[in-house]
Simulated scan of single mutants.
Amino acid sequence: MIDCKGMQGPQAPRGERAASGEDDPVAGPEQPALDRNVQGRIGSHLRAMYDELMQQPIPDRFVDLLAELERSSGKPPSES
């Protein structure tokens, strides 16, 4: 279980924020908060999407643009 001790800001429970003297006009009882389960599911989905994106090959046009940039700046091209 994750505890929120020492946390401040929007991720801290409302009672701890109030106790720390931190005034946050954005957060309040009228602002909905996501529970840990929902946050975890969103994080898992974002990681899966990012991992899938990282598996995609770099488009040839981007490789060509990077090579052109390195040539114009006088740096030798690096191996990728």
Rank of each mutant, 00 (worst) to 15 (best):
M1C: 12
M1V: 13
M1G: 14
D3E: 12
C4T: 15
K5E: 14
G6W: 00
G6C: 03
G6D: 03
M7T: 11
Q8E: 10
Q8D: 11
G9V: 05
G9T: 01
P10A: 13
P10N: 12
Q11H: 15
P13A: 02
P13Q: 00
G15L: 11
G15H: 10
G15Y: 06
R17S: 05
A18C: 08
A18P: 07
V26W: 06
V26A: 11
V26Q: 08
A27S: 09
A27K: 08
G28H: 04
E30H: 07
E30F: 05
E30K: 09
E30Q: 09
P32K: 07
D35H: 07
V38S: 06
V38H: 07
G40C: 07
R41P: 05
R41I: 07
R41E: 10
I42K: 05
G43R: 10
S44D: 08
L46Y: 06
A48Y: 01
M49H: 03
D51R: 02
L53E: 02
L53M: 06
Q55C: 00
Q56C: 05
P57C: 02
F62W: 10
D64Y: 03
L66W: 09
A67S: 15
A67I: 12
A67Q: 15
L69A: 15
S72L: 15
S72Y: 13
S72P: 05
S73D: 08
S73C: 11
S73K: 10
S73R: 12
G74Y: 00
P76L: 09
P77Y: 01
S78H: 13
S78L: 15
